[in-house]
Design a protein around this nucleic acid. Structure first.
Lengths: 340, 340
DNA sequence: CTGCTGTAGTAAACCGGGTTAGTAAGCCGG
DNA sequence: CCGGCTTACTAACCCGGTTTACTACAGCAG
């Protein structure tokens, strides 16, 4: 029972109402001051209602040259099952984007970017979207190609960008480190594989904050696995606190640490970055990355671009520290009463 | 510097190559066996490349009547900030949908459904999408209206549905309860406000499992807040384990319980449902809700529907129990050595 | 009667591809 | 030299709205 009854078109409505297509559009699109008497107006409206007319958005978009929708390119490695933890930041992005798009009366097309099998810029800029928001795509080639075509585009977070909207990573890292220092920590590690702009900026914030407080940072930057070994060795140079590149990273470190017998925060304090859903669930102290706000801002910039206005090339939004239960003052030096 | 250089069209390519539009389409769309000599072929291809031709997906879609994109309607209450926890299930859905759409070479349009300000079915079925996947929308009016128009549509999880894809909620609840019983628990509560089909089915699974094992379930179903009071009172009838309607619910209960001095799992075991990112982060024992798989399945059904095939009306996928660290045998009766 | 303004509409082109039905030329067999 | 077949290609219309330019008529002033 295929229900392929071709839907009524504008022509059908016009004919039913005994007017021309032109008049029908003007009525249905509610063009103001176009001198159509109420009588004709209602005649058209009734015909439309009676026939169950719904305008074909595709045709409309083709006609006036704007699609009224924007594309959200997100890094979502496809088909690898257990990658959800690392993709958790998407939640804030999706929520922000959906909200912003809805507010701007735009549609949102989500395009999964899979590094193994990246979409071609052509596929993406084929006139079905008026502009793009790119999130979390690290490969330069794709993003650069898009920007090179002059297609309206804004990058959120890290990645190649002519126009970038990001959290204040340096400032956020500073907040994290100063919180730990205020608690009494002196050996504060930075856990990161150091890949993206964000990673690098966060490291910079950590490093500068340490330096400002006269604390050494050399050798305190590691991936979480070697870092955990070092924590477990409990030498006198072992860090008492760890600032993680992001929440998902902390979500790898903390369970592993606990399994190995380390208590958090009693034995080691941990601060994350993003303060998203993972941090909430883990009660992780974390620097809030305002992803929804960033995305909203990106959409605003994009609509400006689409309208032809040139916009800022870098927007940085402030972070804030959400103190939860993964940080505490360091334990008194356990068995090494060497100093003082 | 508005870069509004109108992009080259098919006509431009055809003219440049000195052929008709028709020939150009046939070459560019690689219609097989249509007797166009290689010489003409390359002439057209070169012209296209030289002009930087890219076909207008909108026009193509309008022409052959299929948009090649599907809509994902997700319940995303807009502009309420801290609703992320409750929206966590979206992550699995988005990942699954992005993947399935990509595999089926379809575009994915995400439509935020805000109960306070719901989209009209017209807005959604306006020919920009060939079909809809509806997730987590509880208001019957919207979904029913969509189904009533005969528009291809599949519901994932709860909500009004002619075609529904869901986890085996009854079976999942059974797995949760039997795990707890095997650990030695006898008073197992079900924490839920009882709203959606999923809530009700999970309750049913819990209730039946309890009954099968000769355990009472009366009075053991509560919202998490009164339930917590009861746990804290530590009376002899206080539950020793709680099965939560989903992970986010557990993410409300557990921190509150810990704050009040209850240890999990020593004093009370907790099982969640979804086993998503929150459960991973909290190390919560949870019944896995195969949301990505459900969504993939829904997309498959939808493509079938769009192609005109009628499909199943109910698809149920099995769950599995992921045992993590929020469940343990019950403590020996603390101070109430009343029963034997 | 002319010219002007305003009302109420419409025809036709347009957006950019896709498709149907056909033509024109060349070749072959009979 | 006629009919039939293949190859190579195209004119013209389609999809369903949107827009521009124009007509037809009435009313009114001068």
């Amino acid at each position: 029972m295929a229900v392929r009854q071709t839907r009524p078109t504008l022509r059908d409505v016009a004919e039913a109402a005994g007017v021309s297509k032109t008049t029908a559009v003007f009525v249905l699109n509610e063009r103001p001051n176009f001198s159509i008497p109420q009588e004709t107006r209602t005649r058209v409206q009734n015909a439309a209602k009676r026939l169950g007319y719904r305008r074909n958005g595709l045709a409309a978009a083709l006609s006036h040259g704007r699609t009224g929708s924007i594309g959200l390119v997100v890094n979502a490695p496809l088909g690898h099952g257990e990658t959800e933890l690392g993709a958790s930041y998407l939640l804030g992005v999706i929520l922000g984007a959906t909200q912003a798009a809805s507010a701007a009366r735009l549609r949102l097309t989500t395009i999964g970017y899979d590094g193994d099998n990246p979409p071609t810029p052509d596929e993406v800029t084929d006139n079905r979207v008026d502009g793009l928001i790119v999130v979390g795509v690290m490969e330069e080639s794709f993003t650069r190609a898009v920007y090179d075509t002059g297609f309206p585009c804004v990058t959120v977070g890290s990645g190649y960008a002519l126009r970038r909207v990001t959290a204040d990573n340096v400032g956020g890292a500073t907040q994290a480190v100063e919180h730990l220092i205020a608690l009494g920590h002196r050996r504060i590690a930075y856990a990161s594989p150091g890949l993206t702009e964000a990673d690098i900026e966060r490291r910079q914030g950590w490093q500068e904050a340490m330096r400002r407080h006269g604390l050494p940072s050399d050798g305190l930057e590691q991936d979480w696995e070697p870092l955990l070994e070092r924590l477990l060795a409990r030498g006198p140079d072992a860090p008492t606190a760890v600032f993680c590149r992001n929440d998902s990273y902390a979500a790898l470190l903390i369970p592993a640490a606990r399994k190995a017998g380390l208590r958090v925060p009693e034995d080691v304090s941990v601060v994350g970055f993003d303060s998203g859903i993972i941090a909430q669930a883990m009660e992780l102290t974390s620097v809030r990355n305002p992803l929804p706000e960033l995305t909203v801002r990106a959409v605003e910039m994009l609509t400006g671009l689409i309208a032809g206005k040139e916009t800022e090339t870098l927007v940085t939004l402030p972070t804030e520290l959400n103190v939860r239960r993964s940080t505490a003052p360091p334990a008194a030096p356990a068995l090494g009463p060497k100093e003082s």
